[in-house]
Design a binder for these strands. Structure first.
Length: 925
DNA sequence: TAACTGGAATTACAA
DNA sequence: TTTTGTAATTCCAGT
């Protein structure tokens, strides 16, 4: 319902005719380059400028790029707010917004409507409700605090738009009145709101809090832990959820994320490398000041959606402040520049005691010299966390050299840390970036992602937890981005751009806390598998940024299942002719002699089409390996690959996650994989291990076997750099795989199915264009899309050749049929010719992300000020027998791709929706 | 002492 | 509506 409302909101002319232009200018001086970057204003004193203007001039396109639209300083305060000697709050609300929106907000928050331009009064919780900072338990550290993780996804499309900068079409860095409820985000309250980017209004907890007497009782049915009283580990959040305590905490300093603003145009000039990019306490304080006074009202002047997200987005990234730590600049020096701001704002803060508590500036456990040159943040707006990115591009290749163990018991906030994620070998996961020859260090980002069969996205119920201690050798620190905690780890040239991930634990958030979050559609129950997602952003000389991402094998995080449930980590065969009969080796855990392997096929609507039990070689069963004979498919005469699933069953309710398997037509070459050392001993003749990826990254839907990504690039695109000769082979899944390349599959790298013209999970071009550069919005030509998809390797490379649900990415959808990849000569490695070389500005990226997620469709990349390409909505009548046509031709006509691309007029969500439907239908056909 | 573990009791939830 | 089993969460006792 929310989504529908949301969508309709977008399509309704009056709805988008007004563009909530709300901006928050919080010049923090040297304290926060991020802010400077985001707002293009670097002032000497804090200035909070919140305004809502009705701008009829906004184009639809801009609306769709909402995030950026409302966000950019150039939108409202082109010149930035004037420098002031003291904090100033400017609130201007001119416009009105849809009534329904108002109602919605009013009901959710305790905001009193007084008319379009009137003041909204926010009912504030009792100050007594704020938790005493002294009550902070170990878990109260940001590491333990959970955050409402962004759960945006293309699957759900619309949801969570309200609290994800990237997701919200209305996202705005502004402080909204509702956000003000964020006072809730009051420091001590520690709510999700604790982070300024949280909009209380969007959080169900807010309402609950106000109604139930925040933060007296944790929401939910669970009784308070004995320790909740403020003595034990249990921490109170305003809604009772410990993790909700956030950046507001005196010890926490949320900061706006450089990524947070889609329209942020950060240049190298305004990026103050030697300033503390993570010091945004000022903005937090400012927001608190603004939002907690209880009388500020912008509500009536700002579209609800905007108001909901304003607070959320501004600071989409916050810094964890280690208690007792010190805020260090890149060079290790304390950075207290933002203190004045904080202090100044403190007086305005509803939570009076908030700033009285000594600040505990963040401190790296070790000097982080590389920070001074971290290029990661040179880009103001990096891809949203739920964007699918490739693991390699041009010369770069981000790889997980050592995979984490398949089980890691996550800890609750009520518990102490359960340590860092370990590797199978007993060590820790290792990640390395290949192909990077520069001398400047980079930052490796790590967050906890999902491990289901949908697109990779931040896991709503788990957060990465920074592990500290003498046993930890890797420096790291935490930042928040869109409710997702990110661990940043240095990638140093001296270490060969290799990082040992011994500083990452996993925090489990209570299901009840997350599920009640507005917009959250995922359920936590039995959703206990995660993946470590690594990202790196490489700045190019030309200002663009190459973003790479890779995800680990799935990690089971529950205690129980780790002991009982079978877990399939790898499978030796991903696909095989329908005749079956081949032995497949499964590698995993908790296999029993009585374990059964069941193959199932389900229709799109979920009902069973076929189910059969495979023969298990009981003699060879070990707890970690299982040999099973691939059963023949029910139809031996299939003309195209058929995707089925299988699972290992140890008894009632003791099933492994479903694994994907593809039955191929007899004439389709079988994909062979290269055995990995670690598993060689396990592999019997003819068996080689495949990292299993049913629930891993979206994969190619293989109507035709997909070759190695690199191979795919051969000829047309520069291949990813070969792995380093010294690449450890400890991780089978991370080992490259070799595949037989069918001439058909190889020749064109074409999508194997119509859906690939614009797969929902397509890889986002890893290269961002310099801000301001007009976007050409021509992403790769249609026929490149498939390659993009193929490259969208996350986790183990091997899954590249496996089929999988594909997300569709907007970037390509907007491709002009005739357009070709934008050439960027300066791109190293000849990426100019790579399909990944998509020219887009950061703002566009963000805007696109936002619009896409908000609208349930992928973001589109268009220059903010550019009018949408004249793309007629040409809905070509597709042949009814797509599969047949494909098979007959041996390829998917590029022209079809082109037409599909044409169906995505930028900014037209309705059309996009239709397109999705179309794709589904096509696929079905 | 703090971090980390393993186990299990308690509570919530779903079949 | 109740029962029962499972999953989630919290707590304890160690290392």
């Amino acid at each position: 319902i929310t989504g529908l409302k949301y969508i309709s909101f977008f399509f309704f002319p009056d709805a988008y005719s007004y563009t909530p232009n709300v901006s928050l200018s919080l010049p923090l001086g040297m304290g926060n380059p991020c802010l400077a970057n985001q707002y293009h204003t670097l002032q000497t004193s804090p200035v909070i400028s919140v305004s809502s203007c009705h701008q009829t001039g906004y184009s639809l396109q801009n609306d769709n790029h909402a995030a950026s639209g409302y966000y950019l300083p150039h939108g409202l305060r082109p010149n930035g707010a004037p420098a002031l000697e003291s904090p100033r709050i400017e609130i201007t609300a001119y416009s009105q917004y849809p009534e329904d929106e108002v109602e919605e907000s009013s009901s959710e928050d305790h905001i009193i409507k007084r008319g379009v331009n009137s003041i909204v009064t926010l009912t504030l919780p009792n100050a007594d409700g704020y938790r005493d900072p002294s009550c902070l338990s170990p878990a109260s550290s940001i590491s333990s605090r959970s955050c409402n993780s962004e759960a945006s996804s293309y699957e759900s499309g619309f949801y969570n738009y309200d609290n994800s900068p990237q997701n919200s079409p209305w996202q705005s860095p502004c402080v909204s009145p509702r956000g003000s409820s964020s006072l809730l985000s009051c420091p001590h309250a520690g709510g999700p709101a604790g982070s300024p980017h949280h909009s209380p209004s969007t959080s169900p907890q807010i309402g609950a809090m106000a109604e139930e007497g925040w933060p007296a009782q944790p929401r939910g049915s669970r009784p308070n832990s004995p320790s909740c009283g403020g003595v034990g580990k249990r921490k109170y959040s305003f809604n009772g959820a410990p993790y909700r305590q956030t950046s507001c905490s005196p010890n926490q300093s949320p900061i706006p994320s450089p990524h947070g603003s889609p329209r942020v145009s950060v240049t190298d000039e305004n990026w103050l490398a030697n300033t503390n990019q993570y010091t945004n306490s000022a903005i937090v304080a400012a927001i608190n000041a603004l939002t907690t006074d209880g009388v500020i009202d912008m509500g009536e002047g700002i579209p609800i959606k905007t108001r909901k997200t304003m607070l959320d987005h501004s600071p989409s990234m916050s810094l964890k402040v280690e208690p007792g730590g010190e805020e260090l600049g890149p060079d290790g020096e304390l950075c207290h520049e933002d203190y004045p701001s904080r202090l100044a704002l403190k007086k305005e803060n509803y939570c009076g005691g908030f700033l009285d508590v000594p600040q505990h500036p963040y401190s790296w456990s070790k000097p982080k010299p590389y920070l001074s040159n971290v290029s990661c943040y040179s880009s103001p707006s990096l891809p949203a966390l739920d964007w699918q990115l490739p693991s390699c591009s041009g010369p770069y290749n981000l790889q997980i050299e050592v995979q984490p163990k398949s089980h890691h018991r996550a800890h609750y906030e009520t518990e102490g840390s359960r340590g860092a994620v370990k590797a199978l070998s007993g060590g820790h996961p290792v990640v390395q970036l290949y192909g990077y020859m520069e001398s400047e260090p980079l930052t490796l980002q790590l967050f906890i992602g999902t491990a289901d069969d949908r697109l990779l996205r931040p896991h709503a119920f788990y957060q990465v937890h920074r592990i500290t201690g003498k046993t930890v050798s890797t420096a790291s620190h935490e930042v928040m981005q869109s409710n997702t905690k990110i661990l940043e780890i240095p990638l140093l040239p001296e270490n060969n751009m290799r990082a040992i991930i011994d500083c990452a634990g996993i925090l489990k958030l209570r299901n009840s806390d997350i599920e009640l979050r507005k917009g959250e559609t995922d359920i936590g129950r039995k959703n206990t598998r995660v993946r470590l997602v690594f990202r790196v952003h490489i700045n190019q000389p030309n200002g663009r940024t190459v973003s790479l991402q890779t995800a680990s094998n799935p990690i089971e995080c529950s205690q129980r299942s780790a002991q009982e449930l079978p877990l399939v980590e790898k499978q030796s065969v991903e696909s095989y002719p329908a005749t079956g009969g081949k032995m497949m080796l499964l590698s995993g855990l908790n296999f029993l002699p009585d374990s059964k392997v069941v193959f199932v096929e389900k229709a799109q609507d979920g009902h069973h089409l076929w189910e059969t039990e495979a023969k298990v070689d009981k003699d060879s069963v070990k707890s970690s390996t299982l040999v099973v004979e691939i059963p023949p498919y029910r139809n031996q005469r299939i003309s195209s690959p058929v995707h089925v699933n299988f699972y290992v069953c140890n008894g009632k309710r003791k099933r492994s996650q479903c694994q994907r398997f593809t039955y191929l037509p007899p004439n389709v070459p079988v994909i062979k994989t290269e055995p990995s050392d670690e598993y060689d001993s396990l592999v019997t003749a003819g068996l080689s291990m495949h990292s299993k990826p049913y629930y891993s990254q979206p994969r190619l839907t293989p109507i035709m076997p997909v070759a190695d990504p690199d191979a795919c690039l051969v000829g047309a695109y520069p291949p990813c750099p070969p792995r380093h000769a010294a690449i450890p082979s400890s991780s089978p899944s991370s080992s490259p795989t070799l595949h037989d390349l069918s001439p058909v599959a190889y020749s064109k790298c074409l999508p194997s199915s119509p859906t690939h013209a614009a797969p929902p999970g397509s890889v986002v071009p890893p290269i961002q264009e310099t801000p301001g550069r007009p976007n050409l919005a021509h992403p790769a030509s249609p026929d490149h899309n498939s390659c993009l998809g193929m490259l969208h390797s996350q986790g183990s490379p091997s899954h590249l050749n496996s089929p999988g649900p594909h997300g569709y990415h907007p970037i390509y959808a907007n491709s002009s049929p005739s357009s070709s990849p934008v050439s960027h000569p300066s791109t190293p490695g000849g990426t100019a010719e790579s399909p990944f070389v998509q020219a887009y500005s950061p703002s566009q990226v963000q805007a696109a992300a936002s619009s896409a997620q908000a609208g349930g469709s992928p973001p589109s990349l268009l220059p903010e000020d550019a009018s949408p390409p004249s793309m007629a909505i040409t809905v070509k009548q597709e042949p009814q027998e797509l599969d047949q046509m494909y098979l007959d031709d041996g390829k998917l006509p590029e022209t079809r791709c082109a037409h599909i691309a044409c169906k995505f007029p930028l900014g037209n969500y309705l059309t996009k929706e239709r397109h999705f439907v179309f794709l589904d239908e096509s696929f079905s056909i």
